[in-house]
Each structure stands twice: as structure tokens, then as C-alpha cells.
Amino acid sequence: MDISTTLSATPVDDSRLAGILANPGFGQFFTDHMLTVEWTPEQGWHDARITPYGPIAMDPATAVLHYAQETFEGMKAYRRDDGSVWTFRPEENAKRMIRSSRRLAFPELPVEDFVQAVDALVTVDEHWVPENGGEKSLYLRPFMFASEVFLGVRPAQHVTFMVIASPAGAYFKGGVKPVSLWLTHDYTRAGRGGMGAAKTGGNYASSLVAQQEATAHGCDQVVFLDSQEGRYVEELGGMNLYFVFDDGRIVTPETGTILEGITRASIIELAGKLGHQVEERRLSIDEWREGVSSGAITEIFACGTAAVVTPVGTLRSAEGDVPAPPATDVTMRVRQNLVDVQFGRAEDTFGWMHRVV
């Protein structure tokens, strides 16, 4: 893919950038540039360009505004002690975007073009990647949307792919803390045959009212059950779940209606190397309650790109509270091993890391 570059005439100055990187938060500040690629049936993917970051001019009849034909990815770039910059399994993000594209009736952006596009933006804005330490990183948001101007219900004939970037601070300030959960019975994320496995904005929009419900009950995150029987644990509003049993087994809900998280898949491999048998299967809310009560479930943790791995605390619901399991040993071991690979503090025996700069 040929990518043209037009550098910003007014980049953020060094003093301002230093202040941003000292306390970046999450999704509050954006780098000096963005990447854009267009697609039409006649030309395929074309006009790849890096330009100064700024607003997008959009017609009121642009298809994405009416029919939500959109997908996105979330990933990070990490700086190591030697100054080099790496991304974590970008090919897997590219493959997942292809799967999401198929579900959303989008053209498929080839894996090599996806990785090249992300690399190109990171290279141009490399000075925005925070120094190693404190789990700071550069969050990367590739996304694709229906940019054709029309009001008919059909797949768009003009599609735009973009990448933007935002420095991110550590998810946990002052140390990793358990997240409290609210179990919703009123809302579900997706049914079989729906869009649950696609990384598309509609899935997240549907979770917001349930997240409001969780917040109203003093909880950090919401837990969704399956839509068919309302018995089986699926995932949180933005994270996958894992259950550690007293015999060393680790269970995670099977895919099909949940997002196939990159962190989730990596933990399956990592946990196996650490000596744990990992099962992907259905796990009911009753098994959760009874397992914690009997001591059979010794730890529960959630995972995702932003938090990496976090212990799960109390589960609250209309039926009463389920306390947090007492241990976090496996959780923290998995977390530390994964973070050490991402930041280059441990050998990457899986071949997960991709050098950009």
C-alpha cells in the first residue's frame, strides 16, 4: 500500500507534549496525525494518506449515521527501555477486523495493509509513545465506517478506514484493584447469529444502559448472561471473564456470541504455559455462585486491552451479593507475565510482539 504523508504545520510543542504524557488519562488527547484509506468497488482500497489530525467533513446522509455500519479495533504501542516501539499481536487485530467486516458486509482490508497502516501512523507520531514505566502506552484506534452518502438499506459502496492514536496512562493508579460487578437480568448484548462476536460500535451502544444500571448500584462493570436462557455468563460490558478453580483449571466462557478478545486468546496460551488447563465452555451464574460458596472457584478475573488483567471483586444482583474469592495469586501472575512480554521485560517466546520503530 502506497501511503502519502502530509506533516502537520502546527504539531504540539515539546513542552505541551511533556505535560500530556506525564498524565495522559485515556482517550483525552490525540496525536498530531491520522491515517485514512478509501474503498470503492471500482478502485478497491486506495488513496492511503497520513494527514494532520482534525475533524472529518461528513454529509448528513452519510450511511454510518443512519445504519451503524461500522467496525473498530483497540490496540497499543509500547516503548521499551532501549527506546524501541512495539505493538502486541497486530496481525490478530487485523484478522478480527476482517471477521467483523464480514459480519458488517464490509470489504476486507488485508492483514498486511492493516499492519502497515498502523505502523505508518505510529512511526510518524513515535514521539507520542510514552517512556517505559508505569504501564503507559500509545492507544491505537483503527476503525472503518460506511462513508457513502445515501439512505438506502444496503452495504455502502464507499468505505473509509482510519487510524488515530491517543496516549494512555496506566489503567490502575496506585495499584491493581478488583472491579465490582452488577449482574443484569434486563439486558443482553447479543444472541446467536447476532453481532456479539464483531467489534462494532452497536455492541457497545447496547451495553451503555446496562452499564448505567451497574453504576446506579455502585458497581464498576456489568455482567451479561446469554440471551436464550438467561443462565450462562458471557462477558462484561468491555472485558472477557476467567474463572480459576481449586484444581488449577481455568475456565472462560466459550465464543460465538462474545467478543474474541486478543488479550483473552493470549491468556489461554499463556496460562497453558504456566501449567494451567484452560477450558472454553459455558459456565452458569449458578456455578459461579456455588463455586465461590464452596471454595471450588478460587479466583475470578477480567481482561481487555485497557486494563490488561484485573481481579474481580463482589458480584451484586437482585438476588444478593456474591463475595470476591479470597485469592489473586494466579490472576496477578498471569497479569505480570503478560505485561512483562508487552514491555520487553521478559522473553517473547510466543512471537507476539511486532517492532515498529
Score class of each variant (00 low, 15 high):
Met332Phe: 13
Asp321His: 04
Asp246Ile: 05
Val233Gln: 05
Glu319Gly: 03
Pro311Lys: 12
Pro311Gln: 13
Val312Ile: 15
Pro326Gln: 14
Ile262His: 00
Ile268Met: 11
Gln342Pro: 01
Gly248Glu: 06
Glu260Leu: 05
Arg345Pro: 00
Val278Ala: 04
Pro253Cys: 06
Trp288Asp: 01
Ile297His: 11
Phe301Gly: 00
Ala296Ile: 05
Gly248Lys: 05
Leu236Ile: 03
Arg264Thr: 02
Val308Cys: 00
Thr298Arg: 14
Thr331Leu: 11
Asp246Lys: 14
Val330His: 08
Glu269Lys: 15
Ser317Pro: 04
Thr252His: 07
Asp321Phe: 08
Pro253Lys: 07
Ala296Glu: 14
Ala265Pro: 00
Phe301Arg: 03
Phe301Glu: 03
Asp247Tyr: 09
Gly261Glu: 08
Ala302Val: 04
Val334Ile: 15
Pro325Asn: 06
Leu274Lys: 09
Leu241Arg: 04
Arg333Leu: 13
Leu283His: 06
Arg316Glu: 11
Val334His: 05
Ala302Pro: 02
Asp247Ala: 10
Val330Ala: 08
His276Glu: 08
Gly256Asp: 13
Asp286Ile: 08
Ala324Glu: 13
Pro253Arg: 07
Thr305Met: 02
Leu315Ser: 04
Gly295Thr: 12
His276Phe: 08
Arg289Glu: 13
Arg264Ile: 01
Val309Ala: 10
Asp348Trp: 10
Asp329His: 11
Val312Pro: 02
Gln342Gly: 01
Ala346Ser: 15
Leu315Cys: 10
Thr314Cys: 08
Val334Lys: 06
Pro326Thr: 14
Thr257Met: 04
Phe245Cys: 09
Phe245Glu: 13
Asp247Val: 05
Phe301His: 10
Leu283Pro: 00
Leu236Met: 14
Gln277Arg: 13
Val312Gln: 08
Pro311Thr: 10
Gly313Phe: 08
Trp288Ile: 15
Arg249Leu: 02
Thr257Ser: 13
Glu319Trp: 12
Ala307Phe: 11
Val312Cys: 15
Gly344Pro: 01
Thr310Cys: 14
Tyr242Phe: 15
Val312Ser: 11
Thr331Met: 13
Trp288Met: 15
Gln342Ser: 02
Tyr242Glu: 05
Pro326Leu: 12
Val312Tyr: 10
Ala306Met: 09
Glu280Met: 09
Tyr232Gly: 02
Gly344Trp: 02
Gly256Pro: 03
Ser294Asp: 13
Val334Ser: 04
Glu269Thr: 09
Pro325Ala: 09
Ala307Glu: 14
Pro311Gly: 12
Ile250Phe: 05
Arg281Asp: 09
Asp340Cys: 01
Leu259Cys: 01
Arg231Gln: 14
Ile262Met: 02
Arg231Ala: 10
Ala306Ile: 02
Ala265Leu: 11
Arg316Thr: 12
Glu260Ser: 07
Thr310Asp: 02
Gly272Ala: 07
Thr328Val: 13
Val278Arg: 03
Pro311Arg: 11
Gly304Cys: 08
Ser284Val: 01
Val312Arg: 10
Glu319Thr: 05
Leu241Ile: 15
Tyr242Cys: 12
Glu280Pro: 00
Val322Asp: 06
Val308Asp: 00
Thr255Ser: 12
Ile250Ala: 03
Ile268Glu: 06
Glu319Asp: 14
Gly261Tyr: 04
Ser284Trp: 08
Gln342Arg: 03
Glu235Asp: 11
Arg282Tyr: 07
Ile262Phe: 01
Val278Lys: 04
Arg281Leu: 06
Trp288Gly: 01
Ala307Val: 15
